[in-house]
Design a binder for these strands. Structure first.
Lengths: 225, 225
DNA sequence: CCTAAATAACTTGTATACAAGTTTCTGTGA
DNA sequence: TCACAGAAACTTGTATACAAGTTATTTAGG
């Protein structure tokens, strides 16, 4: 588990949740690892209570499994969940981007323009971690433009399963293509071309699908079944 | 707040979560009501810890608002959330019922048949509460047939907002039509007729849309804005 | 050396005590 | 009667103590 600095504003609970979540997504907490409330509390410098509440929340998202009186474990990557996450993205992202075509204001477009411009900039400087964050923000901006912020928060939770696969695929999937997809999506939103948006989202998702087999072959110990 | 019996098997945390949630959906805890961790803990006969964890979870679903050191309140019915919940249903329920057309086994069909038969039975005996539960189970069975159980759990949380409106509309919406919709959906799944399924889900949802205006007029104190 | 029982060291679940901050009440003064 | 200060009674956030159960270790007996 890697250290993550506590922000001065956030509560101990929010800090614990953020720290544990980031460690799970980054795979610094490997799938199958046993975790202890006491151990994490000591590591983060807070008491068991906020750590426990964070773990409860992550167990509801099914990325942590709690066995009462026995221990808790980082869940193995379950293909069932990954498939459901992909299904949700395919369904909801398309519906939301179509809604964004109708509702996006100039301010929304401006924010998206700035985001994609930064992605294109960091693509040249090879800053993969920056692109990762901008990728998340890009999709959040689209949900925001469609006035579906609550659904994005919900999407984030189930997307945790997908995110771990994404972390593993960082090396194989080409950032160039991802940023290119985002640029095309933005242009299609500006043209209010829903059919094009739909196609782009499907193509975008298919990029991750391709290499799941090889990822699984490379890291079999991380997968369930 | 109405009393709800604690099941012998469930933990104090699960009991508190179930009890508070049911009271919110049934409107026995009215929108805008102030709630206290201590008060609820005393009422339920457990300590603050499990009650607190339950409230945290419900605050994440945005049906409870927590103001640190000031108090917590049952959230007013926010039209934004209700609209997002409706959007999710329209989008996801359609995609899932289409998937169910492809994947439903005979066992799935049998369970749906039994459920709808019970709905038709209780329709004659005027047992609205039974139909309410069977309604929930009907949609859950469809998600199960489509192998999307995780998404259903997620759907349940955001649907809390919709459920409160549904509770208010119980008197105005005709159960006859709802059960009729369910019967037609089942027949369309059996025929694997996706286009018909899509139309039925949209018609089904529109039934709740009609009377939101009058509900809001009848209970203005429950609504935000 | 091996087996088995006792025990110690863990786990999470729950209750309680304390901390920090807000609101409300109460009493005192003019 | 009104204004204001201060205390008391709340709120949630956090830390800690204890309960109940599981697992690992240790120790005694053969």
């Amino acid at each position: 588990m890697k250290e993550i600095a506590k922000l001065p504003t956030e509560t101990a609970r929010d800090y614990a949740l953020r720290a544990i979540r980031e460690n799970i997504v980054s795979l610094d907490l490997e799938p199958g690892t046993g975790i202890s409330e006491n151990e994490i509390a000591g590591f983060l410098g807070v008491s068991r209570t906020p750590v426990r509440e964070a773990i409860q929340e992550l167990s509801k998202a099914a990325v942590i499994e709690i066995y009462p009186q026995r221990g808790s474990y980082v869940a193995l990557i379950d293909s069932t969940f990954v498939e459901e996450a992909r299904f949700l993205r395919k369904t909801l992202d398309i519906a939301v981007i179509e809604e964004a075509c109708d509702l996006a204001t100039q301010a929304d477009i401006d924010r998206l323009e700035e985001n994609v411009a930064l992605q294109e900039f960091y693509l040249q400087t090879q800053a993969a971690d920056k692109i990762y964050l901008l990728d998340d923000e890009f999709h959040k901006l689209i949900y925001s433009a469609a006035k579906k912020e609550t659904l994005h928060a919900m999407r984030s939770n189930i997307m945790l399963h997908f995110d771990r696969v994404r972390t593993l695929s960082m090396k194989t999937v080409k950032d160039t293509k991802i940023v290119g997809d985002h640029r095309q999506m933005l242009e299609s939103i500006k043209k209010k071309d829903k059919e094009s948006c739909r196609m782009l989202v499907e193509k975008h998702l298919s990029r991750y699908h391709i290499d799941e087999a090889e990822i699984r072959a490379a890291y079999p110990q991380y997968f369930k079944d």
